[in-house]
Design a protein around this nucleic acid. Structure first.
Length: 775
DNA sequence: ACGCGCATTGTTTTT
DNA sequence: CAATGCGCGT
């Protein structure tokens, strides 16, 4: 092998990375810590296979975790290997399987133009199944039932093989087959089916299996720690018999257990492929030593893990900043102010990202961005594809492609109103079921004038609809997608309908905007010569989390999950509160909190230079606003890694004292109240903070049993403050204000003042420097 | 069949 | 505090 042309591909790689890139065939496991260049290794290896080992690009299958990651890999590959890489199959497991299944549908029970059901569609189908079985959906939550079915599928348990362990399981075992039958009747697969059907097809057809094993002689998998049983099975199946399987992962970054991912698949791989080479990538090229230390301090508390020795050249670094805010609004404001400040100091907006555990947390952040005039991109969230108008029009397109799609059919049969109500749809459904016809077949029978149980009026309405539908279908042959879209929209009077269902013009305009955005996607598809089935598959698999990050100078808001694989010079992780991160839903899951800790670890390790961890004293949730406990994870962070405000005390929290004071009229009353309410969570927290130790707990035994001083705060010596809560003071710059809190800190006095001038708000000042005068 | 209004009820994370 | 969902009245 001449090393001359390989120079480029191997340039800048360390020994281990190079070993991974240039390794020959056979199973290879790359254990790659965060920032160790695993994506780089993966792409370079693919380029190396093509350029140096003369592997045909079409023989390579690369599996990424998101569509976005696939897109990025494709781009990077293009610059490394040029057009030769086009034939590489790059995509998520789901996208890859969808693509193959469409070609090979003969090896499945499904037709060529199957549609893909997303979670909402699934719930609808579950609802249909449960109502057919007379199971009360109030007694048994369809979501829970769906969850159980999905887990079963991820474990490759088929409807026939499902055994309910308890009463609920018994219910599931009845719904599962019915649900699956509805999907089959609808010629629809859910996300899980894409994987399960692929495995089944490969199992059932040796010919197919051999074909694809030969075709994809080289299999590469990113984020291997997040594979589930079906996916592991797929990797094995596609990889056999040569087992040129190259998997990259990091057990510490496994954050998808909720969808069946099992980091133990990494260990399993070593067992199943005992001859596998194992390559460790431990040098981190991303973060400063401080960030790595913090990350390591957090993750090392997990019991089930193999310790790793990550190291970086970037010694030292900025200490991380902890910040306690009064509530979510102040937290957001603090973040934005800090972002503004950093920007003035030379960072770009696009260097900074704000992360959080749950999607609704983005609201306050978005508001703050708008208020502060900070441009932002929101990744994921309650997005585009959930909008009613989008789902409606997509449902039309889906029914055009596949009239058997019962979920979409039910959605649009009376949207906009065409006089076909619940009753009529029901008898249509029973008729079709009795005669063992799919919906599409039933419509044809209706047009042919077959006997039916529908009333004369309803029958006519259905026939009218059928005629329209088949007219649209004939359009798909000759015309563009946009034409089809426009025709449907005008035939059914959708724009008019949109105005009817909108409360006001603004909402209507918003919905129209969404529709034109969808229309834009169709225009694009026409340009790219993508046909309807391809378009619909792309739509189904493209999620809101795949929001493309434009080159614009904006900050990014996203969940910790969405942040996986990304990096930013500055990272804010917000909402470090007990119950939020770790999320309370994880408390009763086995190893749930460990996964939450991994999630925080993923977040921390996104940071290159600066890291902020924030939490709020009080947070608004759906049932009003609630006092929060600090995240137990914060106690894992070594004191000497943190800087910024001494975290025992700061401005925003003092605002609370101020609020309480104003509520109760005067200081004395407030203090009395405080004493009376001394057991409330709020005051307990405040007391803890003042004492500088965390004696309150959240029921988290680990923390409770070992009381660790809160980072950065020392027990305060008794002191004689010069300023007292309630005093009116004057500052030469900030003007008049009121002291809300004061205490002696080492050898100076820290005074917290609420200034009347809103521009200054709450500030913490050092008495010796601030030149405050008592009024 | 449809529209309105009240009640309920649920929110982790994503392909 | 949504958003959905149901029941009632028309």
């Amino acid at each position: 092998m001449s090393d001359h042309p390989t120079g480029d591909l191997l340039a800048g790689l360390n020994d281990r990375q190079r070993a991974a890139v240039t390794a020959g065939g056979g199973p290879i496991l790359v254990l790659a810590g965060p920032g160790s260049g695993k994506t780089r290794v993966l792409t370079r290896r693919i380029a190396y296979l093509i350029n140096e080992m003369n592997i045909p690009a079409r023989s390579i299958m690369a599996v990424t975790f998101t569509n976005k990651a696939a897109g990025e890999m494709r781009n990077r590959l293009k610059s490394l290997a040029g057009d030769r890489m086009r034939a590489v199959q790059i995509g998520t497991f789901h996208a890859t399987c969808a693509r193959i299944l469409r070609i090979e549908h003969d090896s499945t029970p499904y037709g060529k133009d199957f549609v893909i059901y997303d979670t909402d569609d699934q719930l609808n189908a579950i609802g249909q199944a449960m109502s057919e079985l007379n199971i009360d959906t109030r007694k048994f939550n369809p979501r829970a039932v769906l969850g159980a079915i999905s887990s079963a599928k991820n474990e490759l348990i088929l409807p026939s093989g499902y055994v309910g362990q308890d009463y609920f399981g018994e219910i599931v075992s009845r719904v599962y087959p019915r649900y699956q039958a509805i999907l089959l009747d609808s010629n629809a697969m859910d996300f899980d089916d894409l994987l399960v059907q692929m495995v089944l097809a490969l199992h059932h057809s040796p010919v197919l299996q051999e074909k694809y094993q030969r075709k994809f002689a080289w299999v590469l998998v990113d984020e291997f720690q997040d594979t589930n049983t079906v996916q592991y099975q797929l990797v094995s199946l596609f990889g056999a018999p040569q087992n040129n399987i190259f998997v990259v992962g990091d057990e510490d970054q496994s954050i998808y257990a909720f969808r069946g991912a099992d980091y133990r698949n990494v260990a399993r791989f070593r067992q199943d492929y005992p001859d596998a080479s194992v390559i460790l990538l431990e040098q981190n090229y991303r973060s400063t030593q401080v960030v790595l230390d913090v990350a390591n301090a957090v993750i090392s508390r997990n019991k089930h893990r193999t310790p790793k020795a990550l190291f970086t050249d970037k010694a030292g670094g900025e200490l991380i900043t902890l910040h306690e805010a009064y509530d979510d609004e102040y937290e957001a404001r603090y973040v934005m102010e800090e972002i503004d400040d950093l920007r003035r100091r030379g960072y770009h907006y696009s260097d900074m990202a704000v992360m959080y555990r749950t999607n609704p947390q983005s609201r306050a952040l978005e508001r703050a961005c708008v208020d502060e005039g900070i441009p932002y991109t929101l990744v994921g969230g309650v997005g585009f594809y959930k909008r009613r108008e989008i789902r409606d029009m997509l449902a039309y397109l889906r029914v055009v492609q596949n009239p058997d799609d019962r979920v979409s059919f039910a959605r649009i049969i009376n949207t906009p109103k065409r006089g076909i109500g619940k009753k009529s749809l029901e008898s249509f459904q029973y008729w079709a079921a009795d005669a063992e016809m799919s919906y599409g077949e039933a419509l044809i029978k209706l047009l042919e004038g077959a006997d039916n149980p529908l009333g004369a009026r309803a029958a006519k309405l259905f026939r009218d609809f059928a005629e329209q539908l088949f007219a649209w279908r004939s359009l798909t042959e000759a015309s563009t997608l946009v034409d089809l879209f426009d025709t449907i929209s005008s035939d059914v009077g959708y724009n008019l309908y949109l105005h009817e269902i909108s409360d006001n013009d603004l909402e209507a305009a918003d919905r129209m905007d969404n529709l034109s955005e969808l229309r834009g996607l169709l225009v694009q598809a026409d340009e790219d010569e993508i046909n309807l089935p391809e378009f619909l598959i792309d739509q189904a698999l493209m999620t809101d989390a795949d929001t493309k990050l434009t080159g614009e100078d904006r900050i990014t808001l996203m969940t910790l999950h969405a942040a996986k694989g990304l990096e930013y010079p500055v990272v804010f992780i917000t909402g470090l509160e007990d119950g939020l991160l770790p999320h309370f839903r994880s408390f009763d899951e086995p190893d749930g909190v460990e996964e939450e800790r991994r999630l925080l670890y993923v977040g921390i390790t996104r940071a290159m230079e600066r890291l902020y961890l924030t939490y709020a004293f009080k947070r608004t949730t759906w049932s009003g606003s609630q006092a929060q406990e600090r995240s137990s994870f914060l106690y894992d962070i070594p004191e000497d890694m943190t800087a910024g405000l001494p975290s025992g005390l700061n401005t925003d929290r003092s605002y609370q004292s101020y609020k309480q004071m104003t509520t109760w009229g005067n200081t004395r009353a407030a203090q009395d109240t405080e004493r009376r309410n001394a057991t409330s969570g709020l005051d307990r927290l405040r007391r803890d903070l003042q004492r500088g130790s965390a004696t309150s707990n959240s029921g988290n035994k680990a923390v409770n049993s070992k009381i660790i001083p809160f980072p950065g705060s020392e027990p305060q010596p008794p002191a004689e403050p010069q300023f007292h809560t309630g005093m009116s003071v004057y500052h030469s710059v900030f003007g008049a204000g009121m002291v809300v809190e004061s205490h002696v800190n080492q050898d100076d006095e820290e005074v917290t003042v609420v200034f009347s001038d809103k521009r200054y708000g709450v500030k913490k000042l050092l008495a010796s420097l601030a030149n405050l005068t008592v009024q």
